[in-house]
Structures are given as structure tokens and as C-alpha cells.
Amino acid sequence: MQTIYSCIHDIDIDGNQCIRKEVNQKDASDYTQRLINEILGNPNRKEYKITSERTEVVSIVLEASKQSLIENDNADLIALRLLDKERDRQKDVNRLRIEIRRGSLFQSLIQEDDHFYYVITKIENVDILDIQDLYKKSGLPYENKSFKNCLFKIADDGEIIQIFLSDKNGPIADYWDNLFLELEALSSDESNTESLFRIVSAKLKKEIEKISPTDYTLYRNQALGFFKTQEKFTIDDFLNYTFGNQNPESSQLDIDKIKESISKKIIDSGTDTEFTIVSSAIKSRKFRETKKINNVASIIIDGYDEEIKTNVQSVEENGDKYIRIKSTDLETFNRFKW
């Protein structure tokens, strides 16, 4: 990778100003490469597309890759745009006593083989102590302290190949992706919800059901609960929710291996791995599972049951096998009261 340009701006919302700081280009190059690797390797990144080549940030990014150069004035314009959007958002949330996290904006243009990377990332403000003159100076953190990232991958003919955003605080803030960058998510939250639910449901069935039907029922129930009760999807959150609270009933299951397999499948699918869950996007029949009990009756597991092990149980009496189900419907209970 060849670093063409890097800069950092202090975004001072209170003082309503952006201050461009000098950065050591060798440090900036090392930092940018670590940052690019982290963004591309982040399983919780989200892919975006442009709404127009004429929007402010996108037009500057495309011009920089075309000219293999970022003008200081253009880098300043991007920083000033972020200041403007953060200032507006701060006014909106003042009544809620919320303060937008303060930080600096780092920008860098990198060339690698036949494409460019343009990195725009918000990082923690960091002061370093220069050993030579003992003065505090603004610098780049040795460890990555970024919390909002944007990575443009651009072909050498000027075509945008991919755009990835990620946010260490959770869902990507609207002022960052929509108002500041003017980008649009490549996939909707609805389509992501439906797609990821289908993927994890199929993997749970494939990896667990034949080995241990009991564990399949329990872990599937937990997975349903995640999509029914949680606000956002990330791979780690899903795996922790589904597998973290209970040990398998069967000693033949290698849960760590299963979690790794599910994680790889999700990443390889190309679907966004961080998004807001829209449970209504999953058709109710996909939550439902029907199992035959005997020649005249079947049991339908219709969604998530927080107390499934208490409400539905297998029991044996005098050599006969029964499914015992806790009833909360009096009419149905009385129908079988003989």
C-alpha cells in the first residue's frame, strides 16, 4: 500500500471550528493500513451505496482518487461538513441531556495495485508528549481508537467498488451515514433480518438436529428469542444470546465449533452483519415448527418461549411416553379433561 495523503482535524463543536493538525506521514501510513485491515475484517461492518456522485463527500472522494491527490481545502470541507452535522445533531439531543462523543476526523488516501482506498474515520482525541521538546502535540493513537469508520474502495477508472461503514457503539448513527456522508444502506434492515434468520435457522438445523434433537429445539428457541426481543443484530450478540446461557444436553455437541461454523457462514454470505432487527419481516410460518406426537395429534411450536423447558416436557409413565404441555387456555384444557 502507498499512502498518498493523510490529515487529521480536531472537530470542536463547542468552539464551532475545525483545526487541521500536522501528522507524521509514516505514523499515518501505518495507522491507515491497520485501520483498513480492521474495517475489512470487521464482521459487523455494513455495506453502503452512493445516492449521487454529486454529493459533497462523495464528489471529493472521487476527485481525490482521479487526481491521486487530496487538496487540503477539500479535506477541510469534509471536516467542516461533519462539524456542521454534529452541531445540528447536538442541538436536537440537548433536551435529552445527551452529548455527542467528541473526537477528531482522520482522512487518508491509499493506493494499492489497481484501486484506491479513501478512509474517513472519527477517532478519540489523543495528545502525545514529544520526548524532544516535552510539548503536548496532537497525534494518532498507537492502538486504534476509532469509533466511526467509513471506507471507500475505488477502481483506478474512478468507479466505486464498495463502501463499508462500521460503528463500535452499535447501530450506525443517522447523522454519520445519512446526513454527513449522504450514503444509503445497500440492503434494508428488513431484507437483512429475513436473510440472516434464514441462514442461522438452516445452520442450526444442519449442525445440531441429527446429533441432538433436544438441543436443536432449545437452541432454535433461543435463536427465535433473539430475533423477537433484540433491537440490533451483530454476530457476537447473536451467538452469545443463543448459546451463552445454557450447556448442551448432549455431550456430543462441540458448541465452539458450531458457533465458528455459523459465524463463517454469515460472513461468507455477504449479508450485512450489523443492522436493526425488523422481526415483522420474518413470516410467522418461519417461526413455527410442527412435530407429530401420534396418529391423531401434533404439536406446533409457534415462536419463542422463554420457559420452554418448563412449559413443554417429555415424560415416561409405566413404559409409555407422553408430551406434557402447560395449558394457559381454559377452553382447550377442559376439552381434554376426562
Rank of each mutant, 00 (worst) to 15 (best):
K49I: 11
A185S: 15
S280P: 05
I282V: 14
I4L: 12
R20Q: 12
K153R: 13
D12H: 09
K168W: 00
A155M: 13
E317K: 10
E38V: 08
Q67M: 11
K85R: 10
L151F: 03
C7A: 05
N72A: 08
G139C: 12
D174W: 11
I211F: 01
T51P: 03
P248L: 06
T276Q: 06
K205S: 10
D157P: 08
E38L: 14
I4Q: 10
N334S: 13
I235N: 04
N334E: 15
L224R: 14
T328K: 14
G139Q: 13
T121C: 11
V126K: 07
D215C: 09
Q107I: 00
T193H: 08
A202M: 07
L165F: 10
S327R: 09
E307N: 12
Y322I: 03
D84L: 08
L134V: 09
S298P: 00
S284L: 11
T55P: 03
S166Q: 07
F180T: 10
I301A: 00
P43D: 06
G139M: 03
D174Q: 09
G158C: 03
T290V: 14
E86V: 07
I325D: 00
T193K: 03
R81A: 00
I323L: 14
N334W: 12
Y48P: 11
I163P: 01
Q67G: 04
V312F: 09
K291E: 09
T229Q: 15
E289G: 06
N169M: 13
E22G: 12
I267H: 05
S195L: 15
S201T: 09
K85D: 06
I19D: 08
V61H: 00
T55L: 06
E274G: 03
D256H: 07
Q246W: 01
K286P: 01
S104G: 11
T273C: 04
Q162E: 15
I13F: 03
K321N: 09
K145S: 15
T234R: 01
T3G: 07
F227Q: 02
S269K: 06
I123C: 06
G303N: 05
S146C: 03
E143M: 07
D329P: 07
K257H: 14
S314A: 06
S284P: 15
L77K: 15
L218C: 05
E190T: 11
D254V: 10
G158S: 05
S298T: 04
E22R: 15
H9M: 06
A64C: 01
R198W: 01
L105Y: 00
